[in-house]
Design a protein around this nucleic acid. Sequence first.
DNA 1: TTTATATTCAACCGAATGGTTGATAATAGT
DNA 2: ACTATTATCAACCATTCGGTTGAATATAAA
Lengths: 113, 113
Amino acid sequence: MVDNSLNHVFRALADPTRRAMLDSLAAGETTVGRLSKPFSLSLAAVSKHLGVLERAGLVTREARGRERVCRINPAALEDAQVWLDIHDRFWTDRLDALQAEIGKPPAPLGESH
Amino acid sequence: MVDNSLNHVFRALADPTRRAMLDSLAAGETTVGRLSKPFSLSLAAVSKHLGVLERAGLVTREARGRERVCRINPAALEDAQVWLDIHDRFWTDRLDALQAEIGKPPAPLGESH
DNA sequence: TTTATATTCAACCGAATGGTTGATAATAGT
DNA sequence: ACTATTATCAACCATTCGGTTGAATATAAA
């Protein structure tokens, strides 16, 4: 579950257009049409991108009349943040430990074969 | 540059096999062959994944004899972390402000049309 | 009711992904 | 000198991705 969520969130964030859309949405909720204006893309393409963001849980779309109101959902970033925090901390600690153990920066192979 | 780096890092992290490889590497540097063992994948596939991770700056490969020693590079996570931190904080603040301004959770559309 | 607007759907396209296999290169071991 | 091991390369394959266009759907406006 968490794993799959990570897949979707990281994948969604890997596209600069989608990150730009998130930035736009950070300025406040808006509709698909207005969201599409800064990008020289078809409405259908924007809708698809929104689908990806929605599937990742980063954005919600709600029908309001003939428009769809898009909102950002910061909570969905948490999984990714947690993953990065844990791993960065862990890796850094690991490397620090190795370096301390050995005494020189890019520690060579440690295990046997 | 930063943008492109984000593309590569997020894209690299979007694959569970690659995340698992990073986890393996967190236990210490190792060779391509040993890294490939837990995964039921061809060596070539593993090598390709390593290429993606390397291009994202998350991993380095260094020739040592006929083997390649793979190491993790935690620093490459920073761009992604910074992006997530900034945006999560910003978005959350934004939403908090909106909610405070309006008085109810899922604030409706604010601008004119 | 007719017409315009907002959005999605469906089908398609080219490029990139994630995987395979077989050949190749380079180093180690005998 | 041969042989085995380690890894990459090259070509291929199916699937997914990001994009387009045109038709369909639903609501608003005339």
